[in-house]
Design a protein around this nucleic acid. Sequence first.
DNA 1: GTTAGCACTCATCTTGATCGAGTGCTAATC
DNA 2: GATTAGCACTCGATCAAGATGAGTGCTAAC
Lengths: 340, 340
Amino acid sequence: MTLDERKFMILKAIIDDYIMTAMPVGSRTISRKSGVGFSPATIRNEMSDLEELGYLAQPHTSAGRIPSNKAYRLYVDQLLHINGITPEEKIRIDRYMHDRSQQVEEMIRAAANVLSDATQYTSVIVAPQIRSLRIRRVQLVKVSDTMALMIVVTNAGIVKDAAVRIPEGITSEHLFRISEMLTEQLQEHTLSEVRQIFAQMFRDLSTHRRLLGGVMSAMEEKLVEDAPEDIIVGGTTKMLNYPEYSDVEKAKNFLSIFESKDRLAGLLKKSGGMEISIRIGPENEIEELKDCSLVTATYRVGSHGKGTLGIIGPTRMNYRRVLTVMDYMGHVISNLLSGE
Amino acid sequence: MTLDERKFMILKAIIDDYIMTAMPVGSRTISRKSGVGFSPATIRNEMSDLEELGYLAQPHTSAGRIPSNKAYRLYVDQLLHINGITPEEKIRIDRYMHDRSQQVEEMIRAAANVLSDATQYTSVIVAPQIRSLRIRRVQLVKVSDTMALMIVVTNAGIVKDAAVRIPEGITSEHLFRISEMLTEQLQEHTLSEVRQIFAQMFRDLSTHRRLLGGVMSAMEEKLVEDAPEDIIVGGTTKMLNYPEYSDVEKAKNFLSIFESKDRLAGLLKKSGGMEISIRIGPENEIEELKDCSLVTATYRVGSHGKGTLGIIGPTRMNYRRVLTVMDYMGHVISNLLSGE
DNA sequence: GTTAGCACTCATCTTGATCGAGTGCTAATC
DNA sequence: GATTAGCACTCGATCAAGATGAGTGCTAAC
């Protein structure tokens, strides 16, 4: 048995309906739909076939059918064609984003809001991976006699700071000179390259070794290694609007995902190089997401550096809408971050 | 009719029981409790009186009684005596907090976690009000030919940054000189005082007016006025563990409070000067909190500057525990912030 | 190949009976 | 006069039985 034209059509109709209503779809419902010129009985036969093929499932004998994960997979791979974002929405988003594109953090936050507002699902954005960004300036700011604050400005405008212990007797004038020197050396390099450059500097220099050592280890530890993944989540509670989560236990389970950013980071990283990735139900390795789909896309910052944006919703999410919005927002974020 | 010793005792027993179980309390339950040497019938008479006085309510005739908001008010005002935090817990908290006291933001976040872990309710912490903090350093860092980043370090170690447009042709050397000058002028003043100082500077100076104007307005707008209240929330989903919120609608309602930080900020500010404030049910003006209690305390940063920490839980929260933990954490935060 | 017809299934809703925790009142007891 | 035992009563919760209806699978007719 193979999937002919008609089976495709019926399956698509079922999925479309189920995405809207979250209720098992019966043969009559499909038959009534304009464009499907068959009686419920015929549909039933086809549905029976589709069930045998693993695309549909029945919650119980006298209920309608619901799509299986396999069906969604087919749906997103073959049955779905993205329609572009509407001009009105484009304008609305552009305007909103333009107003808050000054500071990166704020921009990302705004983007997360846009994503979850536009899709009505939970959105997740991973800030650009700091280690792949290019350093634009390094500046040491004296805070007390023994402490300075190291500020690193990158090409995406992202500012990171870390406390550095400084030897006593260093004036702010000294710190400025050293900052200038550091900036000169590190400019245009990525944070992941600093180690080598520092090694070189250590060879060339005799003074301020201790201070530089402190700066280097602060960069490495605080900015590269320890750096807690900067993850912004939007619309966490949107999920509670869907009948799938009308049970508090399920809701709690879902919300718990967002309590540990580390876990979330791991999850999002998996999507790796892909331009756009869709993971349906158990394709996510996280137990709590086995009834959810995760759609992720990557955005780029200049030639280096990239981050991830994602939408988490029920497996019966409106993939078309989500893909449309994601696609557009991916570009918006890339442009805003690269433009600065 | 007045509240004699025995009525107090019975009321307290009912509240204590209800706080534990969230179930209407019957006369038998109270009678069984050791320390209450009366039969259910006697208790019933007293309960009937207490109901008439407005301290108890009956969900329906054949159920037990539940405490009214008035009862909680009496409870926290008169019946409750705080017991100190246990040494073990003190050590646990101290250790946890000590490990993350380097960066203010991280420390506040850690404190929010401690609060919600220790109480099992949702915690909220408002970061120190930036406008009342003393400036320690101001530094302008060149980011591009036309933009600089203004970094303000305060006495609490809190770093704020804002983008400032700079006239072309300004070198980083210039910026450093100006930063030194600004630091000298503004040091030890609070952000709310900068306007006057700038006015003075404008009078005295003839050069760099445009740049200084930009710096001033950035300080005023981005750091003082616009500054979105820095609010950290911990354990948002803790509330879902309580039977009061086993209904998704209620849960959604509750969680929506945390979607708008502005509203939350307004709510927390109300507690104003009070050392510790307890608002029960409708005493909170926010509709969504009419079944919740909000306990807030203030912490101080040095002589100036203060912030708020709070716990939000059901009206039947364990006030004793909450007050104990809050009291301790208030001191911990004050010390950590003032010590730096 | 398609569809009308029909028996069958099964979750959901409704109804009514039962249960039991808890009350309020009265009369007996301390 | 305060306390308590006794008892009728209330009312939500629980459960079983029946009715309802959406939907299926199968067969036979078109």
